[in-house]
Design a protein around this nucleic acid. Sequence first.
DNA 1: CACATAATTGAATGATCGTTCAATTATCTA
DNA 2: TAGATAATTGAACGATCATTCAATTATGTG
Lengths: 211, 211
Amino acid sequence: MTTPTRPSADSTRAAILSAARTCFVEKGFAGTSISAIAKEAQINQSLIYHHFGNKQELWVDVKITILEEYHNSQNMNWDKLLTLKNCDEFISEFIQYRFGFFDQHPDALRIIEWQYLEPDPFQLTAYTPESIQTIIKRIKYFQKQKQLSSKYNPELIFSLLLTIPLGFFRSFRDLTANLSKQQLSKLKKEYVQLCIETVLNSLNENSTSYL
Amino acid sequence: MTTPTRPSADSTRAAILSAARTCFVEKGFAGTSISAIAKEAQINQSLIYHHFGNKQELWVDVKITILEEYHNSQNMNWDKLLTLKNCDEFISEFIQYRFGFFDQHPDALRIIEWQYLEPDPFQLTAYTPESIQTIIKRIKYFQKQKQLSSKYNPELIFSLLLTIPLGFFRSFRDLTANLSKQQLSKLKKEYVQLCIETVLNSLNENSTSYL
DNA sequence: CACATAATTGAATGATCGTTCAATTATCTA
DNA sequence: TAGATAATTGAACGATCATTCAATTATGTG
């Protein structure tokens, strides 16, 4: 009854992981200190070492957490994407998937950007090397089917598909800063539509070349 | 004759600035220590404070150096760009400028990415707020002239123009890792061409909508 | 040559870094 | 309830952080 109780080990672990995530996402690995994480989690600094080993392992665990969220996200339905027989649908879905995922998981995008600048043996990647190859094969297939212009290197086309959806998040934070939720949502939809239309109009087989 | 001579103050300053640039570009602000810079420049640590005040001011000086390189770069000829009366030329030149500049100044891209993640009162920006407004006005002008689809928010179109040329540098470092100089150069040209064609084909007035 | 100025040095500052550890406290198990 | 186990604490470690400063050395000026 009057015996002091303490939070479960699991909840402590979770608090540390959550705080670490907050700190790492905001300040990166080098910019985050163990003491800052402990303060954010409101626990004793030594507990981090007891539960996670050291800073590096905690960093990896945060990344794994985010990676699991990615794989559990219905937003990026990989299997469904690969069954699409129509190239336009494929591209349209891919762009929507990619935009939607990073829109709903801004932490993931930020971690990816951090580890682009702060290289780490454990790389959090949205796509495995295999899945990248699968997509590129798919692009080649659509090129053979003449649903997609064969003019360009499929890797470059993939690179374009990867980049375009992220433009909204990278440029113009001022533009979106003072918008209401409805306005922001509308702007996002418009951007996705712009992306899809841009790619489809240019890369289909009968598009005219301007060069 | 036998009197000992020491390097000029200017050359010391230059050595520090160069070393700081190397370190900051690679590891960012938080990841770079004054001692690391001193070691890289092969000078005494205290000299950094004598010549630059403190770490923050050195960081700003590095950014200003890079910004000056940008403004002195004939690669981004702002005035010429704004005289172009033809929308296709305008977009084509803009994309070529942007790709070319970051291709020739990878440090600049990296610093911009660092300060995106590590916010700083002094922001190194490729474009001033005024020049951004100038470009957006230009896009609106082309929309009025019906050289450009009016379907989309001009800010979003600009966002797309900003993003697309950078895709080559951000994704797929594996793809370009083992290429010869000729192969790499060819791939770059192909990517720029892909970007230009993508935007032009989709955003001109008579393009068909896929949505 | 003498003197002022500026550049350079090396040692020291207190703060904070990541990490360890022995001691304490709560929980689980027999 | 006793003893083992696990969670938690606070103090301490050496290393490194950014920064300061007095002393030294070279350079420029009269």
